[in-house]
Simulated scan of single mutants.
Amino acid sequence: MTYTPPKKWTWDAESGGKFASINRPIAGPTHDKELSVGKHPLQLYSLATPNGVKVTVMLEELLAAGHTGAEYDAWLINIQEGDQFSSGFVDVNPNSKIPALLDTTTGTRVFESGAILLYLAEKFGAFLPTDPAGRTEALNWLFWLQGSAPYLGGGFGHFYAYAPEKFEYPINRFAMEAKRHLDVLERNLSERRYLAGDDYTIADIATVPWYGALVKGLVYDAAEFLDVARYENVNRWTDDVMARPAYKRGKIVNRAWGEPQEQLHERHDSSDFETKTQDKIAQDS
């Protein structure tokens, strides 16, 4: 059936498929609720989507590198239940998207995952080269990811995995773009260990939760469809990054689905990885 757009679009709350309950065409809070604030300098409000994982991996990498000021409380924001539309969350992120960060040492709010990574890299002087050429190359790839990921998630992922009906045109359109992105990464990584060169940077931290997860079949169940095995260097780089202890810790923070041992709903202390994952909580109850 051919769709003819009306002269003026109106919102149909039932037309959004899987995410109809959390999508709306206006901003602002839907209810009053203050955000919780813990004991650490950094307060993170998030969920373990690829954008959320970027930030928890970054924080765990900073702590592993000895930056004790990067201690953080990670509070679960359940987007399926509309937590992102609370008045407290909207105060930190007027766009009502996770993740959002509050630096209690300065009173600074930071929203947009790429901005959070850049803020933390500059605050602690880590995972971002200081020479102009190296810094610029890392930022090239960070902003490449920020611009490309919506085509993967909101484009390919939505129409291939989540849309209420399958349509050939959008799936083909965004599959082509996803494979082009993988080829961009493949060509770059054929000459480098990491995206910006020899050093692991915020560009890698930002990109692996999206394109690394894609080639490992962790998102959208599309590994065979996109023939991801052919991207050998992307797979090599993904294995390298995902093997890092900080990545393994960061990927489970604010995760509320999957295997119980891979779920740490909230993180308030480094010991929580040993005592507060859902499998440990179930054993104690």
Rank of each mutant, 00 (worst) to 15 (best):
I202F: 08
H268I: 08
N233G: 00
M176Y: 13
K216P: 02
V253D: 10
V215S: 04
N254E: 14
A222C: 10
H265C: 07
L226K: 10
L264C: 12
V184I: 15
P260Y: 12
E186N: 06
A178E: 05
E262A: 04
P170Q: 04
V208Y: 00
A243Y: 13
E266W: 00
L214D: 03
P164C: 04
V215F: 09
D204V: 08
K179S: 09
Y162N: 05
D239M: 04
V253N: 02
M176D: 14
Y220T: 05
K179D: 02
Q261Y: 10
Y194H: 13
K216G: 07
F167R: 15
R255A: 12
Y247W: 14
K216S: 13
R244M: 09
D240K: 05
E186V: 03
V219E: 06
E266S: 05
D227E: 15
V215Y: 07
G154T: 03
R180D: 10
E191C: 03
D204Q: 11
L152K: 05
A229M: 11
I252Y: 11
H268L: 11
A213N: 09
A163K: 04
D239F: 09
G258A: 12
R236V: 00
N233I: 01
A161L: 03
K251Q: 15
P260A: 11
E191V: 01
K216M: 14
A163L: 05
T201L: 02
Y160T: 05
G217K: 02
T238G: 04
D221Q: 14
G212Y: 06
V215A: 09
E262L: 08
Y160Q: 08
R192D: 07
Y200F: 15
A163R: 01
A256R: 08
A223H: 07
D198A: 14
A206K: 11
V228Q: 03
R230F: 00
E262W: 04
G250S: 03
